[in-house]
Write a protein that binds this DNA or RNA. Structure first.
Lengths: 201, 201
DNA sequence: GCAGTTTTGGACTTGACAGTCCATTTTCGG
DNA sequence: CCGAAAATGGACTGTCAAGTCCAAAACTGC
């Protein structure tokens, strides 16, 4: 890839964002390169100029974008799990986020397109899970420091279980449209950390 | 659809099973109708004869098949959650099942292909989740009857959370290849029901 | 303002795959 | 057996989308 002019960088970005938007609206399967071009008023040669790997490379770039969004959308709550009310605020944020997203999960869709095949695709999700879990675990440790959670608890393991609950809750929501499972997983998961039942709402 | 001859029924079944196998091995995206035909030594006209809706109808039929497998593969353990050792046996069974399946989840793949678009597709998953959760909840209630679980616990809600944990654990395994999250979700989820830590292995 | 590099437009190639059609063979009930 | 209904083979079509290519335009540094 040659050096990028300011104009070039802008075009590349336009294509990327356009692809992400198109996928969010219509799903991966129904998104063709021509759709993206039409939406972004660019041409084939440009797309392949900035994404020499073609569709696959573009999809991977979109996956990275979406993975970042997932964590950003949970901030600042996720980064500050330092009191029980803060935990419940995070819970509300997560539920609200996915309720708004509806039954279309761009990341999951892109992933099952790229399949376990692509090496880079796995890396994106693995890294997302890693940092997500790390932030939750940090919150657990913080609460342990504060004496709010039993120090005997394995913070990483607890975070892993809670994360799994969230993932599953979202997955189920994709199919059923209901956030009931997500809510149950979060409520019970957090309560299990030692928060008792939900305190002051 | 006209009446099915015995031979006809056999052919239909061969196509269905062949499609399922092909998808399990190569994923949905990489599975074409011609692949299925080649593998099952059938012809185009047969496929469209038995699945007039073409690819989409076939995919949906495969989804139903796989959904059934999911529950069957957990029996008899899932149907007999009547003691703590039984719960842990179920846990082991689930983990073993998904470890064996590896990083390819036919059902999830088929679903994100059919998207939230198809009405029938959602129904398949929704029904799967419903009965899965019902079986878990039945186990919880059984344990409550036996005095092993606090009767104040909401069985359905607990089952929902546990199910979400399992789903998420599996989903994460698809990407990372590790069953760590699945194990954590099951261990902590079951322990939370009141089993304390894992008893006699 | 010149030379080299980057950017752009868009026509063209290629391949693949879903779905159609019809003629032929097999099965089934009576 | 016999006629109707079902099953089968496989060639054919149409479409659609990914990716290639080259020549023209714009931009950059000097």
């Amino acid at each position: 890839m040659p050096a990028l002019t300011r104009k070039g960088a802008a075009t590349r970005e336009r294509i990327l964002q356009g692809a992400a938007a198109q996928i969010r609206e219509h799903g991966v399967v129904a998104t063709t390169l021509d759709d993206v071009l039409a939406r972004t008023t660019t041409s084939k040669s440009q797309l392949f100029h900035y994404f020499p790997g073609g569709r696959e490379e573009l999809l991977l770039a979109v996956a990275r974008l979406e993975a970042d969004r997932v964590l950003e959308d949970q901030q600042p709550q996720l980064g500050d799990l330092s009191s029980w009310p803060a935990w419940w605020r995070w819970r509300d944020r997560v539920i609200e986020r996915y309720r708004a997203q509806g039954t279309l999960c761009p990341l999951n869709a892109v992933m099952s397109q790229l399949g376990g095949v692509t090496p880079g695709a796995q890396a994106v999700v693995t890294e997302l899970m890693r940092s997500w879990q790390a932030e939750i675990a940090a919150g657990v440790r913080h609460m342990q420091q504060a004496g709010e959670i039993d120090r005997a608890l394995d913070a990483d393991r607890a975070a892993a279980a809670l994360l799994a609950g969230v993932q599953g809750g979202v997955l189920i929501q994709m199919s059923t449209g209901s956030t009931a499972h997500l809510e149950a997983a979060l409520d019970i998961g957090i309560a299990h950390l030692g928060a008792g039942d939900r305190g002051p709402a």
